[in-house]
Structures are given as structure tokens and as C-alpha cells.
Design a protein around this nucleic acid. Structure first.
Lengths: 228, 228
DNA sequence: AGTTCCATACTACCATACAAGTGTGGTAGT
DNA sequence: ACTACCACACTTGTATGGTAGTATGGAACT
């Protein structure tokens, strides 16, 4: 029996998809890079079919752009999408953290606090990569504890654009301390059931992520889609 | 030159996708129906490839479920997804209608009012199908006027589940009059820049769409995913 | 020198063949 | 009658060849 679970054996398509997505989100494949079914199929030692299918999936998520008979390219970061991703997150996460102040399973709260501890450790040893993941995990746990995990998934999809932008920012700016502080104060607000404070904190927190967006666009102009 | 525009000639894949999606959302292919790449390829007179690719796309949107080596099935309606879709819409649309009360282009406001007129006509001649579309259009215009069209697209994706449920409701219940009245009052609130009233109206409006969800699940049990 | 045209080397799209896993119904054995 | 087993008819996953459209560089012509 080949391990029955959510992964009854990951297909070649899924593997290729995961690797490409990883490379795109980490900016190892920067915006604008040309991809090719054939080249990728050689690179991953599979046929063109699974490569092609992973391209289509990435295209649907907006990570690549497929131009028929011309080529497939890593999408430029669209500032409009970045802003709307922030907008969505702000309003949905404000609503969720309000829910959390009413009712939140103790187990998940402990998970948040464990996450906080690891964040502290990451700041010590300046492991920004892992800190980025922990930030994701923190917010995810919030949604999970409120039974809104599907909502989080949908946000995630829009979030890929915001995240590429945030990662770019990480290159030039290392002030990630506020981030931890925010998370800590939000957790405290949930414990204290102070919905108004929690909502206010969340709003500030999410506004930070696009704080110097214009500077980024100036610094890496060829990575961004220019306004119409 | 083959008409350069947004559709440089729709591919076979896109055509198959559009037709299947249409059939699924209209419940012509009810939840649970078995599909097959081969059968569909014969039906649409194309090879398996474009059919397969449209299946994958539908799967990513959650409209079908692909079980490797077993088959592809139209997804059951997941009540959890229906509720979260409503949750997302409530909070995002409340935020958007608030924006609309601050600033909304006159042109789009006129569009809303034209939509309202057509809604009235549809109620007269009991064209519920078209009324459903107009309802979609009304909300879409709201997002468009606020420059949040991408957000609407993301909502739409989650919305497919909510919509199948709403369509099911349409079969048994024809009281669509409130709907028009709500839309009219929301438009008035925007004109009068009364954000609090607008937000309250929107909240009520969206709560209506899942009003008798439990009854539906009782009436069409085999269309819904049962609780874990 | 500048312009037009065309061969060529790409691209993604589609059709088709084969591989591998799954469910089912019939059959042989008990 | 019942059970175990196996062949077979499905399913999706992968590989590959051919088609049509696109971009590009060089040759021929003005």
C-alpha cells in the first residue's frame, strides 16, 4: 500500500509545480524570466506534459504568463495586486482576530505562543528566511483557530504577489523587530479579549508590509508592472 | 491578422473549460456526476489533452475532484466553503461599500442605476436566470467603482460554491423581491454617503444568501458534502 | 545604407500511444 | 451457496510526434 493520505504519491506534475513555485517566490527566477516547456522538461528529467500542466497551474495563480506560440514568462509584480492583497488581508484578518477575541481554542493559542518563542530565537540568530515562514504560520494559525482555513487559502493565492514584494524588501531592509512585537501584542490582546485593540494592531501590522512599496518599485523597476 | 485583442482565438482548452464550468454551475451536471477525459473528448470532438487541461483547471477551482486512476467527479457542495464564502463577501463588501460612500465615480453609479432598472424588468417577467446575473453584476460594479476588481475576482473563485447553493435555493424559493429592494437601498445610501447604513444593509443582504442553508442540505442531501 | 523578404529556429497547442493503478464481474474452487 | 481470485474494462498519468503561429537574423534588392 503506497501510503494512503493526502499524497497517494506526488505526481511528476506536482513536483515540477512545487519546485517552480518555490523558485519564483524566492525570486531565484526573477520576474520577466523566460521559461520553456522543453528546457524545463530536460532540467527536471520528465516529459513536456507534466511541465506544461504545471505551467498552466502557475498561470492560473498569476505567477507566470503564457503567451500562445510565443513563450511563458515569470509574471512581473503588479503593484495593483500587491495593494489589493493588502486590502483583502486587512479586512479579513481584522474580522478574524475579532472572532479570536470571542472564542479561540486554548490549543491554538499555545501554538501561537510557541511560534512567538521561535520568532525570538530567529531574531537572535538573524534567520530572516525562517522568520518569514513563522510570520506566515502565525497568521495561518489565527485563521485555523477560528475555523476559517479556507479563507486563508484564498488569501494565500492573492498573497503570492504581496510576498514577492515583501521578500524584495527583505533584501534591503532588516528591521524585522517590530514584526515580532506586533505579533506578541496581538496574542496578548486575544488572551485579554480586547477586540478593539486587536483589530487596531492588525491594521497597523498589515499596513507595514507595503510601507515603502514605491521605493521598491524605484529600486527594481524591471521587476514591476508599470502603470497603464 | 487574427483579431488581436484579449482573445487571440480561444483555444480548445478554453472552450471546453467554459462549457463544463457553465454546466456545473447551472447544476446541469449535478454534484457527484462522474466525468471522464475520454468521454468528454468524444463529446467535444477534441483530443484528451485539452479536456484534461480543463479538468485540471476546474479541479484547482474546486469544481471537480480528480482521483488518480479512479476518475473525475463534480465536487459536492461543501457547506463549510459556502459559509466561508459568505464570511469573505460580508467583510470585503462591507469595506468596499464604505469606500464607495466616500468616493464613487458618477459613471459607475449610473451603471448601478441602469442595473436596478433592468432588475425591475426581470422581476416583472419573472426571468430569474437573468436576475441572478444582474445581482452578480451589481456587486461587481461596486468593486469596479472602487478600483478593487482583482479582489472581486478572488471572491468569485470562492463564490462558485455559494452560487451553486444559491441556485439550488432558486429552484424551491422564488421570493427574489427583497433582493431588489436591498440593492436599491444600498444605491441610495451611496448617493447619500451614509456609510453606516450602507454597511448594515450589505451585511443583512449577504446573510440572506445562506438563510435556509440547512433546509437545502436536508432537501438535497446527496448534493452536499457531509460533515466529517 | 536602408528596406523588404524569407529561411530557420524557436514557441505553445493538440493528437495519440503507452504505462500504471483501480474497480468489477465472472469463474473456479471449496 | 459462498468465497477467493483473476482477467478485463475502465480510469488518469506520462511520453512523444506533428502542426501552426511567432521572432529573428541574414540575404537580396532598392
Amino acid at each position: 500500500m503506497p501510503f494512503i493520505g493526502q499524497t497517494p504519491t506526488p505526481s511528476a506534475r506536482d513536483l515540477v509545480y512545487a519546485k517552480l513555485r518555490e523558485k519564483i517566490l524566492s525570486l531565484e527566477l526573477p520576474p520577466g524570466t523566460a521559461l520553456s516547456e522543453k528546457e524545463s522538461s530536460l532540467r527536471f528529467n520528465v516529459s513536456r506534459t507534466p511541465v506544461r500542466e504545471s505551467f498552466l497551474r502557475l498561470a492560473q495563480e498569476g505567477l507566470v504568463q503564457v503567451l500562445p506560440q510565443r513563450g511563458t514568462f515569470v509574471s512581473l509584480i503588479d503593484p495593483e495586486l500587491v495593494e489589493e492583497a493588502r486590502f483583502m488581508r486587512e479586512h479579513l484578518e481584522k474580522a478574524v482576530i475579532r472572532l479570536a477575541c470571542e472564542k479561540f481554542p486554548e490549543e491554538k493559542l499555545a501554538e501561537l505562543e510557541a511560534n512567538l518563542r521561535e520568532q525570538r530565537a530567529c531574531i537572535e540568530r538573524e534567520d530572516h528566511r525562517r522568520l518569514f515562514e513563522l510570520d506566515e504560520g502565525f497568521h495561518r494559525t489565527l485563521f485555523e483557530g477560528c475555523g476559517k482555513l479556507n479563507t486563508w487559502s484564498v488569501i494565500q493565492q492573492m498573497n503570492v504577489h504581496l510576498n514577492r514584494s515583501r521578500l524584495l524588501r527583505l533584501v534591503t531592509d532588516h528591521r524585522w523587530d517590530h514584526l515580532y512585537e506586533h505579533h506578541e501584542r496581538m496574542t496578548a490582546a486575544i488572551r485579554g479579549r480586547d477586540a478593539d485593540a486587536a483589530e487596531r494592531l492588525m491594521k497597523e501590522h498589515l499596513h507595514l508590509s507595503v510601507e515603502d512599496q514605491p521605493l521598491l518599485q524605484e529600486k527594481f523597476p524591471h521587476y514591476f508592472k508599470q502603470g497603464e
